[in-house]
Amino acid sequence: MAEPDPPASGGPAAGDRAATARLVRAAQRGDTLAMNDLLDELAPFVGRICAPIALDDGPDAAQEALTVVFRSLRGLKEPAALYGWVRTIAAREAVRVARRAARAVPAELAELPAPGDPQLAADIRDVLARLSPEHRAVLVLRDLEGLDERTAAERLGLRVGTVKSRLHRARDTFRKAWSA
């Protein structure tokens, strides 16, 4: 379910990972103060994943993702996998909340800009608003979290072939739509 990941943008540095692992174990043993500390550590990370996917519903998504995290924490077998596990939960919950909010644009209109696209940097929120929640999630996992598109799609339970073909087809369309 969850494997160790490379350090994420919001994940701890190597020197802090042992401390985080100790915190996870203490929380799993029932120390609610350790759970409190883990919440402090994870909330900003979850907020960074959820907001670009759920947009205005980012706080809702972050709450729901953190709820799943703490409800399921005892099931996390390997504390080193914490950030990868939380990242997947956050992205999936954000997609679910965004879809529930019925603000999704049709997936076939959703196209992803290329990594490092200057137009993306120009106005991220405007770009995000053009995408479906699933594509926003792939974009966040790719551009913020450094996963490749295939891995991102797999984490989200999306069909990799569909995502890849859309990504290849997308870039020209995206630019045309942007410059129109």
């Binding site: 943008s9 929380a27 609610t32 759970m35 409190n36 919440l39 909330a43 900003p44 979850v46 907020g47 960074r48 959820c50 907001a51 670009p52 759920a54 947009l55 980012g58 706080p59 998504a61 972050a62 709450q63 953190l66 709820t67 799943v68 995290v69 703490f70 409800r71 924490l73 940097a121 991220i124 929120r125 995000l128 966040v140 913020l144």
Partner: peptide, 21 residues
């Protein structure tokens, strides 16, 4: 992460999440 939107769940939202555990 510059320019990307972020969300900061307020304390009440955090309490709901923590209590779930």
């Amino acid at each position: 992460t510059a320019g990307w939107p972020t969300a900061d769940p307020d304390p009440v939202r955090r309490l709901h999440a923590l209590a779930a555990g």
